[in-house]
C-alpha cells in the first residue's frame, strides 16, 4: 500500500533551490525498495524524506483503527512514521538514514517490541 490515498500524490517535491540555503548539494543516489517497488533516494537522508520525495505519504496502518499515518513530528518523538525496515519492525523512518538496497515496508498493525530485533 504505497499509494497516497486520494490520488493526490504530490509531484515535484524536491526543494532543489532555496534563497537562503542555496542549491541542493549533489550526493550519491542510493536505491531502496518500498513494498517491493524500487525508488531513488539521496544518500544520508532519512527514509521518510526519501518516501516523501517520491510521493509516498503513508508509513503505517494503526493497530486499532487501521487508519493510515505518515510523518507527524518529523523528529523521532511520535510513532506515526514507524515502518518495517530490512525486516525490523517499528523503525522510526524520520530519523533513520537510507542505505543502498534497503527494504522498506508499510507496517500494518502492531509490531511487538520483542520482535523488533532481527
Amino acid at each position: 500500500m504505497t499509494d497516497s490515498g486520494d490520488s493526490t500524490a504530490i509531484r515535484g517535491r524536491r526543494l532543489n533551490e532555496h534563497e537562503l540555503l542555496g542549491p541542493l548539494p549533489d550526493v550519491e543516489p542510493v536505491e531502496i525498495t518500498v513494498d517491493g517497488q524500487p525508488f531513488s533516494a539521496r544518500s544520508g537522508e532519512p527514509i521518510a524524506a526519501a518516501l516523501m520525495a517520491n510521493g509516498i505519504d503513508i508509513c503505517r496502518a494503526m493497530p486499532e483503527s487501521g487508519e493510515s499515518r505518515g510523518v507527524f513530528c518529523g523528529v523521532g518523538r511520535c510513532s506515526d512514521c514507524l515502518m518495517i525496515v530490512d525486516g525490523v519492525l517499528n523503525v522510526r523512518t524520520c530519523v533513520t538514514p537510507v542505505t543502498e538496497g534497503m527494504r522498506v515496508e508499510t507496517q500494518h498493525g502492531l509490531g511487538q517490541w520483542e520482535d523488533s530485533q532481527p
Binding site: 494503526m62 493497530p63 486499532e64 483503527s65 487501521g66 487508519e67 499515518r69 507527524f72 511520535c78 510513532s79 506515526d80
Partner: peptide, 13 residues
C-alpha cells in the same frame, strides 16, 4: 467515523 477526535495519537485514545 474512523478519523476520530483522538487525544492520544500513539495509543489511539
Amino acid at each position: 467515523d474512523r478519523l476520530r477526535d483522538y487525544v492520544c495519537r500513539c495509543e489511539e485514545i
